[in-house]
Design a binder for these strands. Structure first.
Lengths: 244, 244
DNA sequence: TATTCGTCGCGAACAGTGTTCGTCAAGCAA
DNA sequence: TTGCTTGACGAACACTGTTCGCGACGAATA
């Protein structure tokens, strides 16, 4: 709201080319007033602080007020640099995705697994981040960079463009969902947690197969299951009929 | 808190067999006091009202206060029957999963697709429900019923127990994530939405593959992509090395 | 240089949320 | 009839994201 009036000159030119503003360009709106003591409170500093908070206090759900307090101001001030909570989430997510390494060595398969693992590692840095990745469809420059790398790897694997385009969704979804589920706020999957108990309670007569497989259902580390999932997906993608 | 003191007699016996209480048994705690005018406010009535609300008001995020208001009481009263928000979510989710049809006809493949589609349809009834399904690991009786059916179908398909146990996670995750992503609060994937714009902005020089594939990335209805995903998964699962 | 003026910064308030505390009354037992 | 256990719930607490509008400052004008 504020930003819209504030940068109205810039945005009018911009609007001639693109109907709506791209929150990833023009990263700092720059306050003309150079306040003496405190740093001038830019968009970057807000995103940095947000990322710092979710990386530090575990599973704290990223609040505007806490960011404002840390930056020694009121919550209203943030709205001059960020359009609201959801835009901030998108910005934070993309900033975090900067750390994902798209380059790598070895076969396409090794590089693909490496890329996805790097992606997972970054998301696993904070439960909040993982949740954000799931509910915010990432469209920032870093998300594009990752998509570009994935498409290239899949092309190298011999997957045609149409299938590859859908496959990147599936692959990232696997990573995101796995991490988000694993790093849930409630440690429900932990030993002794509710899900283990629920499985232990299953009677062999009512749910015979679940009962029989209850150890298998819980078995494996997160990483093992992660690699297993990737293997399933890759095998499936390669096995799918292609047009090319 | 209240419940714990309230049903202490019952729970002490219970505790001898099972360390923690199972929120899915003893579905109504039953207030001994039969109030004259209003219905006695049971756990079932709370879950029913919650399910009614998220099925009616679209994408309203299920608030305890709204449920209390609809039941003509204060929010505190609900805590006598439900342990808190997360338990309520689990109960609501499982109640909703009652509608998932596990029986079916045809080949295992047809029945598997039918089951997953039924699951997806139920979740798609409300965006809130879809989100809940993702963040709440379902361990109620209906979730177990679905798992049981999935395990049986996979066994019929020739998948060994260890792989099947992990596969049901993958399959349900695909459904959940697809529906939750599709029925997101912000209709971001809609034509003209932020993601289409972001893709349209991609330059052919910076992100050549994304740029080239931008139509493919957006193509397909939800259902088409859903079936495509299932096909990938099934192919992958069958292609994975097995011990049996 | 003095004065006006438009432009931001941000304190305070709004409308929500989940959860807890402690009062009060109703029902059963004595 | 009295006493007491037991369950309902109003009010308050500590939060959340978001908006409104006052006030003070920097820059342009007189």
């Amino acid at each position: 709201m504020f930003v819209k009036q504030l940068t109205v000159g810039v945005r009018d030119e911009y609007r001639l080319r693109v109907p709506e503003r791209d929150p990833f360009r023009e990263s700092h709106v720059e306050s003309r007033r150079n306040r003496p003591a405190k740093p001038p409170l830019s968009r970057d500093s807000i995103v940095d602080e947000a990322l710092r908070q979710i990386s530090t206090e575990d599973s704290a759900p990223l609040s505007l007020r806490k960011i404002a307090k840390a930056l020694d101001t009121g919550p209203a001030s943030l709205y001059a640099y960020v359009d609201g909570m959801s835009e901030l989430q998108a910005l934070v997510l993309d900033r975090a995705l900067q750390a994902v390494e798209t380059g790598g060595k070895g076969s396409w398969r090794d590089r693909l697994e490496g890329l996805l693992l790097s992606y997972a590692t970054v998301l696993a840095r904070s439960p909040t981040l993982a949740r954000m990745a799931f509910q915010t469809t990432a469209v920032g420059p870093n998300a594009l960079r990752i998509s570009e790398a994935l498409l290239e790897l899949l092309a190298e694997a011999g997957v045609d463009q149409a299938n590859a385009a859908w496959a990147i969704d599936l692959l990232t979804m696997l990573v995101t969902a796995t991490v988000a589920e694993h790093a849930q706020d409630t440690g429900a999957a932990k030993p002794g947690g509710p899900i283990e108990q629920a499985l232990a309670r299953t009677s062999a007569s009512q749910y015979p197969r679940v009962h029989a497989a209850r150890d298998d259902i819980l078995s494996g580390t997160g990483e093992e299951r992660f690699h297993w999932g990737i293997d399933i997906l890759i095998r499936g993608i390669l096995a799918h009929p292609q047009s090319q």
